[in-house]
């Protein structure tokens, strides 16, 4: 069944056609980002003639995307490190404690996936405000770590449950501490699901617009989406700039996906059995 047969060719053609159809909005995004306002008005989705990269250079400089890129990267990376550290440890505990209390805690964490974020938005803002964290990177890092923990724990717990506990048990019996057993034996086995956790959380954190606006608006630490949205006015929106900024902002995250693609799929694959 591994041979490339006529039927495989037919499938290949069909899938490529689906891919092309799927890319239509992406095509729209790219051509819009290569046009000036006049061209966007006269033929929004036609081929740009001539294409202009002015939007890219202008978005980069006007929105100071360079410094925004640093802010976004810093916030995303630190949040991810915390999420992976705290989330995997927590999930390890939840997955290995087959008690009623452990299960109850797991459900408590899952509750976080269903809560609408608007419910706690104002009280949390007030809390951060009292702690004088508004306008700092910490506020966002703490926010993302907390808000994405339920999903992270959900992914890790499913995965860890499917792992045999024997190795870690053997290490413990050999006299290793729980912490050693975790860092040396369990965590390396979590690599695939960590890839999944990484990419899915990164996508959310990288693209989030409202929270950075709320917590960092007006500070020197604005993230990429905040800077890009400054071009969207009620009256006059410069969509050429917006879409060029969007393409620039999406490239890093797409690269991360391409690099992690193998892990993402494997991570899900092994986690599903939980």
């Amino acid at each position: 069944m591994n041979r490339y047969r006529p039927r495989t060719l037919a499938l290949e053609l069909l899938m490529v056609a689906a891919g092309v159809a799927f890319l239509f909005p992406v095509y729209a995004l790219i051509v819009l980002s290569l046009k000036d306002a006049g061209q966007i008005a006269s033929s929004p989705l036609g081929l740009p003639k001539p294409p202009t990269v002015d939007n890219y250079t202008e978005a980069w400089s006007t929105a100071s995307l360079g410094s925004a890129l640093l802010s976004s990267t810093l916030i995303t990376v630190v949040s991810l490190v915390l999420l992976i550290a705290i989330g995997s440890c927590g999930a390890y505990f939840l997955a290995r404690r087959a008690t009623r209390l452990g299960y109850g805690l797991y459900i408590l964490f899952l509750l976080g996936i269903v809560l609408p974020f608007q419910l706690g938005m104002i009280p949390l803002y007030n809390l951060f405000s009292k702690l004088e964290l508004i306008g700092t990177y910490q506020s966002l890092i703490l926010f993302y770590t907390g808000i994405q923990l339920p999903f992270t724990i959900f992914l890790y717990t499913g995965f860890i449950r499917a792992l045999p506990a024997d190795y870690a048990t053997a290490a413990l019996v050999d006299g290793a501490s729980h912490f050693q057993a975790y860092t040396r034996i369990v965590f390396p086995l979590l690599r695939p699901i960590t890839g999944t956790v990484l990419i899915l959380n990164a996508v959310f954190i990288w693209n989030d617009f409202f929270t950075p606006l709320l917590y960092l608006g007006g500070s020197a630490h604005e993230t990429i989406p905040v800077r890009i949205f400054a071009f969207v006015g009620q009256y006059v929106s410069d969509y050429g700039l917006v879409f060029a900024g969007l393409v620039l902002g999406a490239i890093p995250i797409l690269l991360v996906f391409l690099l992690l693609q193998r892990y993402v799929i494997k991570g899900f694959a092994s986690g599903l059995k939980g």
Partner: peptide, 11 residues
């Protein structure tokens, strides 16, 4: 990052 942001908003 907090140290980096010492000169940040809300100050």
């Amino acid at each position: 990052p907090g140290l980096l942001s010492a000169c940040g908003g809300g100050s």
